[in-house]
């Protein structure tokens, strides 16, 4: 292994990395909001709305994200709808990951014991404060493990934006490999950066989970 070849390209790689982080943060925010809307739609909407959300979820579960990106970037213009590269990428990540996140939210809300809600009604709490003080705090803690896995997927999938010429981490990496012909050195470095970043993210989420679940009875398995 000869690492010296990639040193001149470190600034390029750093720029690509930051671009990926920027896209990931933006997409994660829009995906979470969309997921919340999807959850609300399937919880409160009428039968037609629920059916649409269900069909959309089924399609996304079977559809490779690259196909979705192609449709948004290359097929929609034929119908007069044209997004620029970054917008098309963020839109793809949002549309693809929101059903997965909605599933995580739904699962977490369902896992809050019904008895607690009933008890809260008995002692006269209003629906809004039941939601704000009993359901949401617990559901947040419960959804963190699955949401973390999904968001890790989202961060890594920012790489697909490279196929529509967004100069993020994977795009720059491919450029560097084509200059240096040092694929193993370059990709090892890139994998290490991904790993450290995502391990940091995982650690933060675990800390958050611990904080949010401090009121829940602890379940131990030995």
């Amino acid at each position: 292994m000869d690492w010296s070849d990639i040193i001149p390209y470190l600034p390029d790689l750093a720029r690509g990395f930051l671009k990926s982080i920027e896209i990931a943060l933006l997409s994660a925010a829009t995906a979470l909001v969309t997921a919340l809307l999807l959850t609300l739609a399937s919880a409160t909407g009428n039968a037609i709305v629920r059916a649409i959300v269900a069909a959309y979820t089924e399609i996304i579960l079977g559809l490779p994200i690259l196909v979705l990106l192609y449709v948004i970037y290359f097929v929609l213009p034929k119908f007069g709808v044209r997004f620029d590269e970054t917008t098309a990428g963020v839109l793809t990540l949002t549309l693809y990951y929101s059903p997965y996140l909605a599933e995580a939210i739904r699962g977490a809300v369902a896992a809050v014991p019904v008895g607690q809600v009933e008890a809260a009604r008995m002692i006269g709490l209003g629906e809004l404060s039941i939601l704000a003080r009993i359901v949401v705090p617990q559901a947040l803690a419960l959804m963190i493990p699955s949401a973390t896995g999904i968001l890790i997927g989202l961060v890594k999938d920012t790489a697909i934006l490279s196929v529509i010429s967004v100069e993020e981490f994977a795009y720059v990496t491919k450029q560097v490999v084509s200059h240096t012909y040092a694929p193993f050195e370059t990709w090892t470095l890139v994998a290490a950066v991904y790993w450290v970043t995502l391990a940091l993210f995982e650690t933060l989420m675990r800390g958050l989970e611990r904080r949010l679940s401090r009121f829940r009875p602890k379940v131990e398995f030995h």
Binding site: M1, F184, T188, A191, A192, W195, V196
Partner: peptide, 11 residues
Amino acid sequence: SLSVALVIGIC
């Protein structure tokens, strides 16, 4: 991750 690099280095 360094050990991963070493694994790749085998090839």
